[in-house]
Computed example of a mutant assay.
Amino acid sequence: MVFIRDTELSLRAAVALVNTLPETNAEGVDGLVSPSDLDDYLRGFPYTGAIVRDEEELAAVRRIRPRIRGLWEVDRVGAVPLVNAMLRDGHALPQLVIHDGYDWHIHATEASAPLATRMLVEAAMAFAEVIRTDQWDRVRRCAADDCDGVYVDYSKNGSKRYCDTGNCGNRMNVNAYRRRKSAGTG
């Protein structure tokens, strides 16, 4: 295991949120345009606390995506001020909690904080752990030539090259096979 469970869950949620941005997929489709899209996201990545499920909350969640995406555009040192700003803006006050079958873990906002604030702070807390444990090399962008998706590599040997959003690994392997075949080397 590369990260503790709650850090990995928060990182996975951040990846999925960022990968709803239209620039992260070949189709250029925004995956978070309606409250039902947000509901779909929240089914996969549940958050405790108040969830309003209205257009204002959706707009606030949409606004934090580029900030979180910015973490994939900098190195470890460059991520520090971004993470610190997210924590400051979210009025983070880490505290231990236990609930819903989860053992002790850290929440850094009140349950009554707006959903987008809780999402931003949880992402920042997870990235603080990535920085603190010197695992920044696992924060990556997809290596597919037609994808700008993001991911965090959880593999033991750190060898993952493609995101999970568009079947990129299989697509690139097929493309490489076809190139070898047409060149007569495969």
Rank of each mutant, 00 (worst) to 15 (best):
1 M>Y: 11
2 V>S: 14
2 V>D: 13
2 V>F: 08
3 F>W: 13
5 R>I: 09
6 D>Q: 14
6 D>F: 07
8 E>I: 07
8 E>S: 14
10 S>F: 06
12 R>S: 09
12 R>T: 08
13 A>C: 09
14 A>Y: 08
17 L>D: 00
18 V>G: 00
20 T>V: 04
21 L>A: 11
22 P>F: 06
24 T>L: 02
25 N>Y: 00
29 V>W: 06
29 V>P: 00
30 D>C: 03
32 L>D: 05
33 V>F: 06
33 V>E: 15
33 V>L: 14
35 P>M: 10
36 S>G: 06
40 D>T: 07
40 D>G: 10
40 D>V: 00
43 R>C: 03
45 F>M: 09
46 P>Q: 10
47 Y>C: 09
48 T>N: 11
50 A>W: 05
50 A>L: 14
53 R>T: 08
55 E>Y: 03
61 V>F: 04
63 R>G: 02
64 I>F: 05
66 P>D: 03
72 W>N: 03
74 V>Q: 00
78 G>Y: 02
78 G>P: 04
78 G>R: 02
79 A>S: 07
84 N>P: 01
84 N>Q: 11
85 A>M: 04
86 M>H: 00
87 L>P: 05
88 R>H: 11
89 D>F: 09
90 G>M: 00
92 A>N: 05
94 P>W: 10
97 V>T: 14
98 I>M: 15
101 G>R: 04
103 D>S: 13
103 D>C: 04
103 D>G: 15
105 H>T: 05
110 E>F: 04
112 S>H: 03
112 S>C: 00
113 A>V: 01
113 A>F: 01
115 L>A: 02
118 R>A: 08
121 V>R: 03
121 V>K: 03
122 E>Y: 07
125 M>R: 13
127 F>I: 01
128 A>K: 10
133 T>L: 13
134 D>A: 14
134 D>F: 05
134 D>T: 10
136 W>L: 11
138 R>Y: 01
140 R>K: 15
140 R>W: 02
140 R>L: 12
142 C>Q: 06
143 A>L: 12
144 A>M: 06
146 D>Q: 08
150 V>T: 09
151 Y>L: 10
153 D>G: 09
153 D>T: 08
154 Y>A: 07
154 Y>T: 10
154 Y>R: 10
157 N>Q: 13
157 N>T: 10
157 N>M: 12
158 G>M: 11
159 S>C: 05
163 C>I: 01
163 C>E: 02
164 D>A: 13
165 T>I: 08
167 N>A: 12
168 C>H: 07
174 V>P: 07
176 A>T: 15
177 Y>H: 15
178 R>Y: 12
181 K>A: 10
182 S>H: 14
182 S>G: 04
184 G>S: 11
184 G>A: 11
186 G>H: 12
